[in-house]
Every structure is written in C-alpha cells, then in structure tokens.
C-alpha cells in the first residue's frame, strides 16, 4: 500500500499551500464584498417601498435559485460576450462568490434586523431619532451581533464553494491537488491532503463560532 509513501504527502504540500492562498483570497474578498451586498439588499428587503423590495427579492431569488457552478460559467464565459471584455479568472471568481454569498447574507441581514424587538425602534423614534438614525445607532449594532454566527457559517460555505472554481482553472486548493494527481497518477494522497487543507480552515472556524454562540446565549 502506498498510502504510507510519505513522499507524495510532502511533494503535494507546496502546491496546495499555493492553492490555499487563492482559496483564502477569493473567500475573504468575496465574502467581504458579499457582506456589503448583503447589507444593502437585506435592508432593501425590509423596505416598505415595493420597487426597492422587488429589486432585492429578484436578486436574492435568482442567485439562490441557480447553482453556483452555472453562475461562475455565466460570469466567466457568458458576460464577456455581452460586455466585450473578458474578466480574469480571479476577478470572475471573487465576483461570483460576492454575488452568491451576498444573496444568502441579505437574508441573514434581514432576519437579524427583524429579530430586534420592535420596542427598540419605538424607543429610538420616541426620542426623536430619525428612522435612519434609529437603524444606525439602535437596531444595526444589535442585529450585527446576532448576524455573526450565521455569517460565520456562510464564510465556511463560501470557502468550500470556491472549490467549484477549479472548473475554470482557478489555481485553488482543489485544482492544485488535481494537477498533482494527474501528473503523478497518484490519487489517494493528494486528495486526502486537499480535504485536510479545507479542514484546517473550517474546523477552527466552527470551533470559534460555537464558542461565540455559546457566549451570546449566556447573555
């Protein structure tokens, strides 16, 4: 059994570490932009203005109703036809994660904001704060705390989702592992290491999240 041939584990590691950089870059920038999008569209979903609400709803439903792999193909191969300029792989990947996570985060934002008791809004407004001041100083800070656990989950989901971008040859963790595998005709070691790479990020994230959640519950 060559499972124990340590060489393969060692040889694939630098490749995977290189891939890790891309995976993390796409995830962090993508989820950050996704949070910005999610905050905007999430607040639009609470709006009483039907047009504003409608725009946000269409965005969220379209993104949530289509697979991410189709979205990245559409953005990377499809959009250049329309725009006449092609996007590089990294930009397309970040854009895809941002748009995708943004839709899910919008629902997280909406849910968290709506979970803040109405008495808070009433107290703010009764003091003379405008509705946007009430949102900014009273509702949002409380909602933000409640958002953190589901946002952490979304971060983990998006991190794993980036592996789909190996389909457009983004040199992420999975792509690097596959390259090694097809070059050496060994499969067990590189793919085991690929999985381990993801777990190195996801398990600590989950532990931190659970701790935070427990602390939140105690309050």
């Amino acid at each position: 059994m060559y499972i124990f041939s340590v060489n393969h584990y060692i040889e694939v590691l630098p490749l995977l570490l290189e891939g890790l950089q891309f995976t993390l870059l796409i995830t962090f920038v993508g989820v950050f932009l996704g949070f910005v999008l999610g905050a905007i569209f999430g607040l639009m979903r609470i709006s009483k203005n039907k047009i504003v609400y409608g725009i946000a709803t269409v965005y969220i439903e379209v993104v949530r109703g289509t697979p991410l792999l189709a979205q990245i193909f559409f953005i990377y191969f499809g959009l250049p036809d329309l725009l006449g300029v092609s996007l590089d792989k990294l930009t397309a990947s970040i854009l895809a994660i941002a748009l995708n996570a943004g839709a899910y985060i919008a629902e997280i934002v909406r849910g968290s904001v709506e979970s803040v008791e109405d008495g808070q809004r009433e107290a703010g407004r009764s003091l003379g704060l405008s509705s946007s001041q009430t949102m900014r100083y009273i509702i949002w800070p409380q909602a933000l705390k409640r958002m953190i656990p589901p946002l952490g989950n979304q971060f983990i989901i998006s991190l794993k989702d980036t592996s789909l971008f190996s389909a457009i040859a983004v040199t992420d963790i999975l792509y690097q592992g596959r390259q090694y595998a097809s070059g050496t005709f060994t499969y067990f070691e590189p793919y085991l290491m690929v999985c381990a790479m993801y777990l190195i990020i996801t398990i600590p994230s989950m532990v931190i999240l659970r701790r935070y959640e427990r602390r939140l519950e105690k309050k």
């Binding site: 008791e117 008495g119 808070q120 009433e122 107290a123 703010g124 407004r125 009764s126 003091l127 003379g128 704060l129 405008s130 009273i138 800070p141 409380q142 705390k145």
Partner: peptide
C-alpha cells in the same frame, strides 16, 4: 415628527432600554 417627538418623552411598560 422627529422634532415633535424630541419634545415628548415616552416611557414604556417594558422599558425598552438599549441593551448594547
């Protein structure tokens, strides 16, 4: 209305203090 409300104080049954 914000101007009027700033001159009319209100105290609620459930206090509605800002917990943060």
């Amino acid at each position: 209305i914000n101007d009027i409300r700033s001159k009319v104080g209100m105290v609620f049954q459930h206090f509605n203090l800002f917990p943060h």
